[in-house]
C-alpha cells in the first residue's frame, strides 16, 4: 500500500452496494457508511507518518484484542499532527501516578476539528511534545519508537468521534492509499462444537447447525509479525441470498463489549473463531447441495469473491 488516489471511487462503490442490498438492516448500515463516506472531503487530514506503511488495519484481531485504529510501520520517523488540533492528553511509557501501566507507551491525544480526537501511540520514549498546546496540521508532535505493547516499530493511530462516541476507521478520514490489490480469501470453514470442516478438503459434511467462518486478510507490505489483517468489508451469501455483511467502518462500546456496526448486536469477541477466522453467520444446513459465496473488499473498493459448493449429507 502506498499513498495517493482519490476517494470518489470508494463512495460510488458504496452507493452501488446500498442500492443493490435488499435487507433493510443492511441498507441502513450501508446508508450510514455512505453518509460517513460523504463527509470525507470535510476532513483535510494527512498521514501522521510518511510514507504510510499500514501494518494492521481497523478490526484486525491480534493477540487477543481487536485493533480499533491503524498501525503504521516506521523506524524512528517524525510523527506529525494529522490536522490542526490541541493537545488534550499525554502520557509517558511506564507506570502512571495512578499505578496504571501505559500499554500504549508514550502517547498523546489531540483534539481535532469537528469533535474528532486522535491518539498517536507508541511514540519513542521522551519524544512526545507534551509542552505543546495548539498544533498545526503537519507539525511534528513526536517520533515513532515502539514504546509500550506493540510488536513492531511504528505507531498506532486511532480516531475517536467524540460526538458519536465511536472509534472511526482512520482510513475514512485520511487520504486514500494507492492500492490495487484486493483482499485475499484463504479458506472457508464450517464448525460446530469442536469439529471444524474446512470446505473443499472434504467432499461432504453432515447436516446440522454450523458457524460459517472465513479466513481473509488484507495484503500489506509491512515487516511486522504477520496476523491476518481485517479487510474493510466482508460479505456472505448462501445459495444466492446475502446472509451477513461486516463493515469495519466504526466501532463502539456498549456494556463492556466492542461492537462493530456491520453486524448489530455482535461484539468483537464473537466475530472471530478460535482458529482465527471471521465468524460470519450461524446456519442450519439440511441435506442437499449448498453454494456459499464470500466477498471481501478493501476501503479503495478492490474486491474479491470466492464460491464453494458442497454436499450436506
Amino acid at each position: 500500500m502506498s499513498r495517493g488516489g482519490s476517494s470518489s471511487g470508494r463512495r460510488s462503490h458504496l452507493s452501488d452496494l446500498a442500492v443493490l442490498t435488499r435487507s433493510r438492516t443492511l441498507r441502513r448500515a450501508l446508508a450510514s457508511l455512505v453518509a460517513v463516506s460523504a463527509l470525507l472531503p470535510a476532513f483535510g487530514w494527512d498521514w501522521p507518518l510518511a510514507p504510510p506503511r499500514v501494518a494492521a488495519t481497523f478490526g484486525t484481531f491480534a493477540k487477543g484484542r481487536v485493533i480499533t485504529g491503524l498501525a503504521l510501520a516506521s523506524d524512528e520517523s517524525p510523527v506529525r499532527a494529522a490536522d490542526d488540533g490541541e493537545l488534550s492528553f499525554s502520557a509517558e511509557e511506564g507506570n502512571s501516578p495512578s499505578g496504571l501501566p501505559m500499554a500504549l507507551g508514550t502517547f498523546i491525544v489531540l483534539e481535532h476539528p469537528k469533535s474528532m480526537a486522535a491518539a498517536y501511540s507508541h511514540l519513542a520514549p521522551g519524544s512526545a511534545s507534551t509542552s505543546l498546546r495548539k498544533v498545526k496540521s503537519g507539525e511534528i508532535i513526536g517520533k515513532s519508537g515502539g514504546s509500550g505493547w506493540i510488536e513492531g516499530n511504528g505507531i498506532l493511530f486511532q480516531v475517536l468521534d467524540r460526538r458519536a462516541g465511536t472509534w472511526v476507521n482512520p482510513l475514512l478520514v485520511l487520504p486514500p492509499l494507492e492500492d490495487d490489490k484486493p483482499p485475499v480469501i484463504r479458506s472457508l470453514a464450517l464448525s460446530r462444537a469442536d469439529k471444524v470442516f474446512v470446505v473443499g478438503s472434504s467432499p461432504s459434511i453432515p447436516q446440522g447447525t454450523y458457524v460459517i467462518s472465513a479466513d481473509v486478510t488484507e495484503p500489506v507490505d509491512s515487516a511486522w509479525p504477520s496476523v491476518p489483517l481485517a479487510p474493510f468489508g466482508i460479505r456472505l451469501s448462501i445459495d444466492g441470498v446475502e446472509a451477513a455483511r461486516d463493515s469495519f467502518d466504526v466501532a463502539r462500546c456498549s456494556g463492556g463489549k466492542i461492537i462493530f456496526f456491520g453486524r448489530p448486536g455482535v461484539d468483537a469477541d464473537e466475530l472471530r473463531t478460535k482458529e482465527g477466522r471471521y465468524a460470519l453467520a450461524e446456519r442450519l444446513f439440511t441435506r442437499g447441495r449448498t453454494a456459499i459465496e464470500v466477498g471481501v473488499e478493501d476501503e479503495r473498493g478492490n474486491k474479491r469473491a470466492s464460491t464453494w459448493t458442497f454436499v450436506v449429507e
Binding site: 502512571s96 501516578p97 496504571l100 463489549k257
Partner: peptide
C-alpha cells in the same frame, strides 16, 4: 495492549471478567 480493555484475575491467575471501555483508559 489497546489500553481500552481491563481484566481482573482470580487468585488462580485466570481472568474473571474483561471489560472493553469506549475509549483509552487514562487513570
Amino acid at each position: 495492549p489497546d489500553q481500552a480493555s481491563v481484566s481482573e484475575l482470580a487468585s488462580s491467575g485466570q481472568a474473571t471478567w474483561t471489560y472493553h471501555f469506549p475509549s483509552i483508559v487514562t487513570t
